[in-house]
Design a protein around this nucleic acid. Structure first.
Length: 847
DNA sequence: TTAGGGTTAG
């Protein structure tokens, strides 16, 4: 801030000058942009001075200025300045001057204060003042209503409207404009029609501002005919009326008609204005209509709109949203004075394309150029961090948010939580969530979805219950909570939520429909999933991908492939995720040739560069089917660095095919990349155990305990009558543990009678056979299956979920039970589903 | 006070 060296007399003089000379010269906010550059500089200098006067309060020392009237005049003036400065800091100083001097807040000063607070983003304080003063100015009521609708509190805005009607305050056209805007979002058509009747009664039927808003209202509710009728009946159509029609048609999916109105408007000699261009272009962007967008671009260039920054920004956004990032970049590069909007649109464009590093490069570029990021920019850059899991950069952005006091923006806080959730840091997300004074539905959904996806299904379900006490969930909530049921394989819970969805009419939402299919797939009810999938009227890429992945998970490789082909026939192009699903399906069914075929289709036909996940599927496929050295060479040839998962797939393959020598070589890579992951040590230990290399097993054991690593305990659960029963490996804490134990013993005897011998090599214990057998009996999935037999009526499928991969002995026993006790068993392990029936498993040995 | 950029869903 500039400081002013000033003595007592000068201060007195300057304060006098402010009141007598400057006051009449202060332009209003609206006049300011119209001033000449020279005048603007003069005003800005004065503002700099006044800012200093306010912050330093030099008048405190002068009796002459302690005159209350003078201070009151000054404060009114200061409020006006704050409106230009938009600085809450200065605004607060003004307030303290008022309070310190005991100045009464009357209508004039109160009104100024309200306007000042609202402009500085302190709506709450503005409302407090607003409520205190006797206010009959319709302008202030409109202001408050507009502010509430800007932050999405449409109900509060409507509440104010009712209040002003009750107080008998005369409404104007802007009041109706705001009311209709609110009703467009939260109201029903019926309420809008009531407002329509009311405004006709008050004589606003020919007021363009009101009728234009009414047209927009009907369009937003899809009542195209009503909107058209109003437009046709308008005596005098202004450019806004035309713009409303164009935008209305485009957003209702009638882009052609919108363009027709646009042409008609031009033919009738109406001049399209900037808003027309912006409306048409943003309509093209939202509908994904680049052809129309390009035509408008050409027209606008002829009409010289391209010099307007707003136009350029909309144009670049249109290209970016229509997927043509190159065209967007060309527009961006031509903009001479890039505004914060230009930069943000470009950043959002890169993020949309998944080029997070490009987005971050742009972000740094804009800061370098001295363009200050605003809440929109911050939200976009957080999204880029979220997409790429860039936690450290995300944390830097969080610091920037704190320094610049941006947390109060719901968009910012929500994007921040989403970033933390997607980067896997739910503690940080929870911290942001708990500190938010106001939360909206997106905040709740983000947290619930975050917990669901980060393997905290219970936290997600608990938060969902809390949410129900606070606000109504929406379709997105459903799509966020269902994966929690899916990850728990909590079929009962999932069914309840499915019921809730049906009762509340969320089932027509495609995201919800997809999530339901996914939930039933992961809860093991594949047939129902397929049925519900078939019922989705317009399946999107996600619907198909869920189904393909579902077949893969259940070991139906050829069904997954035919669904994939069906999808392409339906005209839906696969993306990288759907290729992961089909490759995964191939690997879980041992379909080597088909796997290669899809890998090549992806690369050469669809031009999708394989990512780590795709390579992992291929390595998995080769390893499972015994092509171990081929898999090794494949990894070595990879153009990107393999991660531990990829080497881990090969290590699993080494176990299946008992290749100890290669396993040792592969394990070196795995341990180097993920030295803390106990699972891989256990895997190698099992490979040694199966080869009866007990010395090596012990060495590994020592290594594990030296490093202080603990084996992730095996844990299985089974849902009986909605209650989840959990079994831990070797545990006997369950109330029915004894019964379960004796049932398992009986089963084991029967198995031996029929020639099965226990697969003791999988026990990872180097002791006598008896102890090994006891350890095998204690495996959590066996206990859960036995509990299922004891608790469920005959003939009912037993559904068990396990946190780790199923062991071979348990797998054998499940096969036996399915034949001997005539029970279907559905076992979901950490990798896939095993469906046991009549002594066979759907995995056919691939797991 | 018709008009440009941003958050949740495989």
């Amino acid at each position: 801030m500039v400081t002013y060296a000033i003595n007592h007399l000068q201060c007195q003089f300057l304060c006098h000058q402010i009141c007598t000379v400057l006051v009449p010269q202060i332009p209003s906010r609206h006049q300011f942009p119209l001033l000449t550059t020279k005048l603007k500089i003069t005003v800005l200098k004065s503002i700099g001075f006044v800012r200093w006067v306010i912050l330093k309060k030099p008048w405190k020392h002068y009796t002459a200025l302690k005159n209350v009237n003078l201070i009151q005049e000054l404060t009114v003036l200061f409020c006006s300045f704050v409106l230009i400065l938009k600085s809450l800091e200065v605004g607060k100083k003004v307030r303290s001057i008022i309070d310190d001097n005991g100045i009464a807040i009357d209508g004039v000063l109160g009104g100024k204060l309200v306007f000042m607070y609202v402009t500085c983003g302190e709506l709450k304080e503005g409302r407090r003042v607003f409520d205190k003063i006797d206010n009959e100015k319709v302008f202030l009521w409109n202001l408050m209503m507009n502010e509430y609708s800007k932050i999405g509190k449409f109900k509060e805005s409507m509440h104010l409207f009712k209040k002003m009607i009750n107080l008998g305050i005369e409404v104007d056209s802007y009041t109706f404009s705001c009311v209709l805007k609110c009703l467009a979002v939260v109201g029903s058509v019926k309420e809008g029609e009531l407002a329509h009747g009311y405004l006709l009664k008050l004589g606003f039927g020919h007021n363009n501002i009101v009728v234009n808003s009414l047209i927009s209202f009907y369009f937003k509710h899809g009542r195209v005919e009503n909107a058209r009728k109003l437009f046709d009946e308008l005596n005098v159509r202004d450019v806004v009326s035309w713009n409303c029609m164009i935008s209305g048609y485009i957003t209702n999916g009638m882009a052609e008609k919108g363009l027709q109105v646009f042409k008609e408007m031009l033919c009738l000699g109406f001049d399209a204005d900037l808003a027309t261009m912006v409306t048409v272009l943003s309509g093209c962007a939202n509908r994904g209509a680049p052809m129309l967008g390009r035509a408008v671009h050409a027209f606008a260039v002829k009409a010289c709109f391209y010099k307007e920054i707003t136009f350029d920004n909309t144009l670049l956004d249109m290209y970016s949203k229509c997927g043509d990032l190159h065209a967007a970049v060309r527009v961006f590069e031509k903009i001479e004075n890039k505004s914060v909007v230009s930069w943000t649109s470009m950043i959002a464009g890169y993020t949309r394309k998944g080029i997070s590093d490009g987005a971050i490069r742009l972000f740094r570029g804009m800061v370098r150029e001295g363009v200050e990021p605003d809440v929109f920019t911050i939200t976009s850059i957080l999204h880029a961090c979220a997409c790429d899991g860039l936690l450290e950069i995300g944390k830097d952005v969080h610091n920037y948010i704190k320094e610049n006091d941006m947390q109060s923006s719901l968009y910012v806080s929500n994007a921040l939580m989403d970033m933390y959730a997607k980067c896997g840091s739910m503690e940080d997300a929870q911290l942001v969530f708990s500190q938010m004074p106001v939360k909206d539905i997106v905040s709740w959904n983000t947290m619930i979805g975050g917990y669901s996806k980060n393997c905290f299904p219970n936290e997600a379900l608990n938060l969902f219950v809390t949410m129900l006490q606070e606000l109504e969930p929406d379709g997105v909530t459903m799509a966020c909570i269902l994966p929690a049921c899916a990850s728990l394989a909590a079929l009962q819970r999932g069914r309840e939520i499915h019921g809730y969805i049906l009762r509340h009419g969320f089932s027509s939402d495609r995201h919800v429909a997809n999530a339901i299919v996914d939930m039933y797939v992961k809860c093991g009810v594949l047939v129902l999933a397929r049925l519900l999938f078939d019922m989705i009227p317009a399946k999107d890429l996600v619907s198909w991908t869920v189904m393909i992945a579902g077949y893969g998970m259940h070991g139906f490789g050829s069904e997954a492939i035919s669904t994939f082909n069906e999808m392409r026939k339906a005209g839906i192009e696969p993306d990288e995720v759907s290729f992961i699903s089909v490759l995964y399906a191939c690997s879980h069914s041992g379909l080597v040739d088909e796997g290669w075929r899809f890998f090549n289709i992806m690369r050469y036909e669809c031009n999708i560069e394989p990512k780590l996940e795709h390579y992992a599927c291929m390595v998995d496929l080769l390893s499972r089917t015994g092509y171990l050295s081929k898999a090794y060479r494949f990894i070595e040839m990879m153009p990107i660095a393999p991660d531990a998962t990829i080497w881990g797939c090969l290590l699993s393959g080494c176990r299946i095919h008992h290749n100890v020598k290669l396993a040792e070589k592969v394990a070196e890579h795995v341990f180097e990349l993920e030295p803390e992951n106990t699972g891989y040590y256990v895997l190698l230990a099992n490979i040694y155990a199966e080869a009866e290399k007990w010395e090596e097993v012990n060495k590994l054991r020592e290594k594990i305990s030296r490093r202080g690593l603990k084996k992730n305990p095996g844990c299985s659960w089974i849902e009986i009558k909605g209650k989840v029963n959990i079994f831990v490996a070797g545990g006997s804490a369950h109330p029915q543990a004894k019964k379960i134990g004796s049932l398992l013993k009986r089963l084991r005897l029967k198995m031996e009678e029929e020639g099965y011998s226990p697969k003791t090599r999988y026990a990872l214990i180097n002791s006598d056979e008896m102890e090994k057998e006891a350890a095998l009996c204690g495996h959590s999935e066996k206990s859960a299956m036995a509990f299922g037999i004891l608790s469920l009526p005959p003939g009912k499928t037993i559904r068990v979920t396990k946190n780790l991969r199923v062991c071979c002995d348990c797998h054998e026993m499940a096969k036996f039970i399915s034949k001997n006790a005539r029970r279907e068993i559905l076992l979901r392990d950490s990798n896939r589903f095993h469906h046991f029936k009549d002594g066979h498993c759907s995995c056919r040995g691939f797991w």
